[in-house]
Nucleic acid binder design. Structure first.
Lengths: 172, 172
DNA sequence: GAAATTGTAACTATAATGGTTACAAAATTG
DNA sequence: CAATTTTGTAACCATTATAGTTACAATTTC
C-alpha cells in the first residue's frame, strides 16, 4: 500500500475545478472540501501547475482553475504530475553481488515492475476528469455558477474575455 | 511511489529458496544476499509463512524453505501475503459532506482504484517464482547443492524422507 | 495605498519501513 | 540432560514521506 493520499486529493481538486467551471477556486475553498489545510492544497497545485493542468493567480480575485479540457485530461496526466516513481520500489540497499540471485534480481524485478506500471498507466489513461465528474453527479446536488468574477490575468491566460494582461502568470 | 521495498525483498527471498531447492536457508544467509539484517528477513518470513508460502524451523539445523511448488506460486500470492492495501490510498481525513464533490468523491475514486488494483493483480497472477528464477539463470552462475543436511522436523513437514516427527511446526 | 491571495520557507507531527540489540523458545547434537 | 544453534519476538532507534501549521513576501485588484 502506498499510505499516501496525494493521488486521491489531486483528483478531488481537479474534479472540483471541473465542477465549478470558469470560476477560480481559492485554496481556502478547496481545502474546505478536501478537509485539510490550504497550504497542503497550494503545494499540490504547484505540482499540477507545473504539469500544465491548472493555472493560478495571486491577488484579491485570485485562485486556480483548470488549464485544460477536463474531457481530455486523464488520470494518467494526474498520476504523472505527482511524479510517483512506480507502484513498487526495488531494494533500498543493492543486493549482494556475490550471490547468483542477488546479482541479477534487480534487473529481472525491474522488468516485472515495468509490466505492472504499464498496466496501471493503461487503466488511468482511459479515465478522464470529466468521467469522474459525470460519475459524481448522479449522487450529488448540481450547482450552477452565474457570472463568476474572474481575475483579469487569469481570464486572459486562458484565452477568455476581458481585461488587462497580467504581468506574470505561471502556467508551467 | 510506494517507497517500500517489501515486495522486491519478498520475491528475492522466495527466489533464493527456489534456487537452493531442498536446502533450508538460514535468515543469516538470506540477509547476506539481500544485504540487510537477519531480523528484517525473519519478520518477512513470518508473513510468508502465514500465507503458507514457506516453512521455517528453529534449532541447529533450522532455516526456511519453500512450502509450495515455485512453478505454481505467483507474484500475486506474494503480493497478497504482504497485505498491501492497494496501489493508492483514499483521503486520510474524510472530505466535506457539505460539498457535492466531497460527499461522493470517495465512492467514485474507490471504483477507479479497484480497477487499478485488478489490473495490477492480473499482471502479478501471470508471473510465477519459477519464471523469475528462470529469468535469473541466463545471467548467473549455477550452483548445485548436494545432500543438504535438513532438519528432521522440516523434512517431515514437507512430506520428505527420514527422521522423527518434530513436535511443532508452523506452516500457517 | 489597502486588502486579498498565492508562493514559499520553516518547523512540527505522524506513520511506515527498516535496522539493531537482546533474549526466550525450539530443535539438534553429543 | 546440557550445550549449541537458529527462529520467534519484543523493544527501541533511525530514516523517510506525507501532512499539518504558522508566518510572511510577492502579486494583483480595487
Amino acid at each position: 500500500m502506498s499510505t499516501n493520499s496525494r493521488f486521491a486529493v489531486a483528483v478531488h481538486v481537479l474534479s472540483l475545478m471541473a465542477w465549478s467551471g470558469e470560476e477560480p477556486l481559492k485554496s481556502e475553498q478547496v481545502a474546505e472540501s478536501v478537509n485539510t489545510n490550504p497550504v497542503v492544497i497550494r503545494r499540490m497545485l504547484l505540482d499540477l501547475a507545473q504539469a500544465g493542468l491548472v493555472v493560478s493567480q495571486t491577488g484579491s480575485l485570485g485562485g486556480s482553475r483548470l488549464a485544460t479540457d477536463p474531457a481530455k485530461t486523464t488520470l494518467l496526466d494526474v498520476y504523472q504530475a505527482l511524479e510517483y516513481g512506480g507502484v513498487f520500489s526495488l531494494h533500498r540497499q543493492p543486493p549482494s553481488r556475490d550471490c547468483p540471485v542477488g546479482v541479477n534480481i534487480e534487473t529481472v524485478l525491474g522488468e516485472v515492475l515495468q509490466e505492472v506500471d504499464s498496466a496501471v498507466e493503461l487503466v488511468l489513461k482511459n479515465i478522464t476528469i470529466d468521467d469522474v465528474v459525470q460519475r459524481l453527479k448522479p449522487c450529488g446536488t448540481l450547482t450552477s455558477v452565474k457570472n463568476p468574477r474572474v481575475g483579469k490575468a487569469l481570464g486572459k491566460a486562458l484565452g477568455k474575455s476581458n481585461g488587462k494582461v497580467a504581468k506574470v502568470l505561471r502556467t508551467a
